[in-house]
Design a binder for these strands. Structure first.
Length: 275
DNA sequence: AGTGCGACCCGAACGC
DNA sequence: TGCGTTCGGGTCGCAC
């Protein structure tokens, strides 16, 4: 499941492969992927080039000059660069063909990802982008900001860390890891958090995300037909998907619970519920 | 406004 | 073996 580190890896990989190549044609195989008008998508892309790829939270932003193509990979979205002659895989839903006869193909087994073509000036009006909070790797993420956003809420901390309007880009895996590193129980209510907790959250989210980006993410498998990009961060995970395994700090068995409908892993000894 | 939860989707894992 | 069922993941939108 792509989180901020995976999306950053995709961005860097694709920048090396598709920038400034002229788009020859597009093929929208699964129209529901596309939130904007399909006919407009088919009409506008040919002749344009991707001149840059940016990222806001987990959103990829392909810069087409006068338009942006927004792309959210959700859980299993992947981009492949393939020769246009290659057979189309049943999970490839949108294909953008360049005039050097290579394709940028969007692949998504769950069909959960979304794309949206917007005029450049409409970016600030686009809800999904506009409401993104501060990224863990940004210096604007301070303990004061976190305390201000979190301490009024009565939701469990796990739920709060998944709220993209506060910290942008944390998903289920890193939320568990950040809580473990901050020694905060996932069920702790936001209103019970201290400024010191917020400093720990800030430091650990920054450290974990920076490290994950260096490793190329957790779950990245392959982004081209030939060139494999494999995430190495999974070997550093302390709690996520480690139910019944011993905590690396104290040896206590890692527990799994549901918080806000999401599976949540934590060490019951290292992460005490605050009083 | 803040919070809770179902819908979206389908492959994998599980139960019988 | 081969069915059927359940689960999970991020985000949106609706209900309370």
């Amino acid at each position: 499941m792509p989180e901020i580190a995976e999306v950053e890896t995709v961005r860097n990989t694709l920048k090396n492969m598709i920038l400034n190549k002229e788009i020859k044609s597009v093929n929208v195989i699964y129209p529901k992927m596309l939130e904007s008008d399909i006919e407009e998508f088919k009409k506008l892309l040919p002749g344009k080039k991707f001149i840059d790829i940016k990222r806001v939270g987990k959103w990829l932003i392909f810069d087409l000059g006068d338009y942006y193509l927004l792309s959210h990979l959700r859980m299993e979205g992947k981009f492949f660069v393939k020769n246009s002659k290659n057979e189309i895989n049943k999970h490839e839903h949108i294909i953008i063909t360049f005039n050097d006869n290579t394709d940028l193909r969007y692949h998504d087994t769950r069909k959960f990802g979304r794309m949206n073509l917007i005029k450049k000036e409409d970016l600030d009006k686009t809800e999904a982008i506009k409401k993104q909070g501060i990224e863990p790797i940004s210096n604007d993420l301070t303990e004061e900001y976190l305390y201000e956003k979190i301490s009024k809420k009565h939701l469990p901390m796990k739920t709060i860390l998944l709220d993209q309007t506060i910290i942008a880009g944390l998903g289920n895996i890193y939320a568990d890891e950040v809580l473990f590193a901050s020694k905060i129980h996932p069920l702790t209510k936001g209103c019970d958090i201290t400024l010191n907790d917020c400093e720990n959250l800030k430091e650990s989210s920054k450290k974990i995300i920076e490290e994950a980006i260096k490793c190329g993410g957790t779950t990245i498998r392959s982004y081209t037909s030939s060139l494999g990009v494999t995430g190495r961060f999974q070997q550093f995970l302390q709690v996520h998907k480690r139910e019944d395994e011993p905590c690396n700090i104290c040896g206590t068995k890692i527990e799994k619970i549901k918080v806000g409908g999401r599976s949540t892993y934590f060490c019951p000894k290292c992460q005490k519920e605050s009083s």
